[in-house]
């Protein structure tokens, strides 16, 4: 273990970890937005919305995220979408995780007991009121934990922007492996930072989940 080398290069990894955190936050926000929209469309009364959302989920989950990143970043300019690598990576990964979150959110909504909806409708609430005041508050609690699983995968998934040269943790590790020939040290350094990020986020989700359970 070359500790002297680690001490010399670690500031680059801290900086890279910050980029990974920014990527994770933006991707999660975009993913949640896509997931909420997707779930609403999946549960819509209009067949066309259901069909669009089902196709979105099936196509995104049926193809590799890396290819999706490449299509947007390298193929985008051909159809007039010119994005820098950070923006292209964030959008591609956000749309990708959104497909998984669509299924998570939909799953939580449909697992709320049907009697709740029936009772609310019998009491004269509209479909929208029932959803907003009865179903969603209960579903929100159910979806915290599975969304946490999605977010854990998303944080590790941000490594996929390394091949399009976003200077985040994996790209930095790769670059230093190439220049120092010390793969184990670089792996441990970047791996440790990933685990710290995942641990902190995991604790946050655990806290949210517990709070949701008490009330």
């Amino acid at each position: 273990m070359d500790t002297e080398l680690i001490l010399r290069v670690y500031p680059f990894f801290i900086e890279a970890a910050w980029v990974t955190i920014q990527l994770s936050v933006l991707t999660a926000a975009l993913g949640l937005a896509c997931g909420a929209l997707g779930a609403a469309a999946r549960l819509s009364r209009l067949a066309i919305f259901r069909w669009i959302a089902a196709t979105y989920v099936s196509v995104i989950r049926g193809t590799p995220a890396l290819i999706q990143v490449f299509i947007l970043y390298f193929g985008g300019p051909q159809v007039g979408i010119q994005l820098d690598s950070f923006a292209a990576g964030t959008i591609a990964l956000g749309v990708n995780i959104g497909a998984y979150m669509t299924e998570t959110i939909r799953g939580a909504i449909v697992s709320v007991d049907k009697g709740q909806t029936e009772a609310a409708r019998t009491l004269g609430m509209s479909r929208w009121q029932t959803m907003r005041k009865v179903v969603l508050p209960q579903a929100a609690r159910l979806m915290i934990r599975p969304l946490g699983v999605n977010i854990n995968a998303l944080i590790k998934g941000t490594a996929l922007v390394a091949p399009i040269s976003v200077v985040e943790l994996t790209y930095t590790a790769q670059r230093f492996i190439g220049s120092t020939y010390k793969p184990f040290e670089m792996f441990l350094l970047s791996g440790l930072l990933y685990m710290v990020i995942i641990y902190v986020v995991g604790q946050g989700i655990h806290w949210l989940d517990r709070r949701a359970r008490i009330t």
Binding site: K156, A159, T170, Y181, K182, F187, G191
Partner: peptide, 22 residues
């Protein structure tokens, strides 16, 4: 297992490919 579940696959591929060469 802890290390492999907490880090990205891409990073692990770099470790295995370049680590074995080393």
């Amino acid at each position: 297992a802890f290390l492999f579940m907490g880090t990205p696959l891409l990073l692990q591929l770099f470790l295995i490919y370049f680590g074995l060469i080393q």
